[in-house]
């Protein structure tokens, strides 16, 4: 199952021009600032925004090709779209909402309602079927919206900032559940977000959009290490580690450990901005709680800053001034000491 799309469409403020291919089982995050065209891209794939030119194929089936005069309407595309603000039908009960897609496909009411009930159990809301959407919390509403879409068994799942409207505490729990549902989903998955951490934590591949154009595409590690522009570097150019925290010490999945201040125990993400990574010629005896030795594999000069890729345990990217590089006499292949203060590590529950 694959999605191949070249999307050219007119959005009010700019022209959307994106080419992408997403494989089955792959989770691709579309990242970019507000107004970059992320939502428009999803709407175009869903058939809600007509293409001016280009082509969208899913599993070899052409969904849209203006040149060939093909345009499958939204209701005939095997897609599911989850909206940022849920868009549950306010006049229908929670169960009727989940059953909506099944009923639209001609399933008998009783059967559809039974199936909807099973989906509500799967998203952890077995008792809420008779309630009206207005009485649900944000997290509950988005669970229902997810169930409503998954119940129709789409081949292409489009998620438009599904967590943006949730408050911080709800978001953590919802993200964990969403990841589980996404893992068991067999089709193509496309997640739009403006939160870099969310994108890097969940996606196999990132697509970064700005002004309707694709700036860069690659794995999170790839994009972090080789941001192709200042903008991308600022957006996603952070060090992201996954590990298990216990008493302020995070044992990293890819080797090494970090000491962070006030980390909650359990599976976590640790984020270290390259600017906060200090480099030393000799082992420092100062305050940094995290000190280890690494080797510079790459130095990327970007105007007034140099990004230094370092191999070690863990590997990390540092961002220093050209003057610092001169003072250190740092060159590719050199060994160098790396220091990160415990207070500079941001920890998020995974």
């Amino acid at each position: 199952m694959t999605l191949e799309a070249r999307v050219l469409a007119d959005v009010s403020a700019f022209e959307l021009d994106v080419e992408l291919a997403v494989g089955a089982g792959e989770l691709v995050a579309v990242l970019g600032p507000n107004g970059a065209g992320k939502t428009s891209l999803l709407r175009a794939l869903a058939g809600l925004l007509p293409l001016r030119s280009g082509r969208v194929t899913l599993d070899g089936v052409v969904l849209e090709d203006p040149a060939a005069g093909i345009r499958l309407p939204s209701e005939r595309r095997p897609i599911g779209l989850v909206f940022q603000d849920y868009l549950l039908f306010p006049h229908l009960s929670v169960r009727e909402n989940v059953a909506f897609g099944l009923r639209a496909r001609g399933m008998a009411r009783v059967v559809a309602m039974g199936e909807a009930g099973r989906w509500l159990e799967r998203v952890g809301m077995p008792a809420e079927g008779d309630r009206k959407p207005a009485s649900l919390s944000g997290g509950q509403a988005q669970r229902v919206a997810l169930a409503r879409v998954l119940a129709t068994n789409p081949a292409l799942l489009l998620l438009d900032e599904p967590m943006a409207a949730l408050d911080a505490s709800t978001r953590v729990a919802f993200r964990r559940d969403l990841r589980q549902h996404l893992e068991s989903f067999r089709g193509v998955r496309l997640l739009v977000t403006h939160d870099p951490l969310e994108a890097m934590a969940m996606a196999d591949r990132l697509i970064i959009l700005e002004h309707g154009r694709m700036l860069q595409s690659g794995t999170p590690a790839d994009v972090t290490q080789h941001p192709r522009s200042r903008y991308v570097a600022d957006l996603v150019g952070v060090n992201l580690f996954r590990g298990r925290a216990s008493h302020d010490v995070i044992t990293l999945a890819d080797g090494g450990s970090l000491t962070a201040a006030g980390a909650a125990d359990g599976d976590v993400f640790a984020v270290v901005h390259p600017r906060t990574v200090a480099l030393y010629r000799t082992r420092p005896d100062g305050t940094p709680r995290n000190v280890w030795e690494g080797r510079a594999i790459d130095l990327d000069s970007e105007g007034d800053r140099v990004r230094v890729r370092l191999a070690g345990s863990p590997s990390i990217v540092a961002e220093v001034t050209p003057a610092a590089v001169r003072d250190l006499g740092l060159d590719r292949g050199d060994r160098v000491w790396i220091g990160v203060k415990a207070t500079e590590i941001n920890v998020y529950p995974a």
Binding site: A46, L48, S74, E75, R76, F83, F89, G101, A104, R105
Partner: peptide, 24 residues
């Protein structure tokens, strides 16, 4: 966008009108 949501869920325009637009 309620109508958009209904259409992406597979509802025909007629179904959207009767089950979403007019009730809303």
């Amino acid at each position: 966008r309620f109508e958009d949501a209904a259409r992406t869920l597979g509802a025909s325009r007629w179904t959207v009108l009767w089950r979403v637009t007019l009730p809303l």
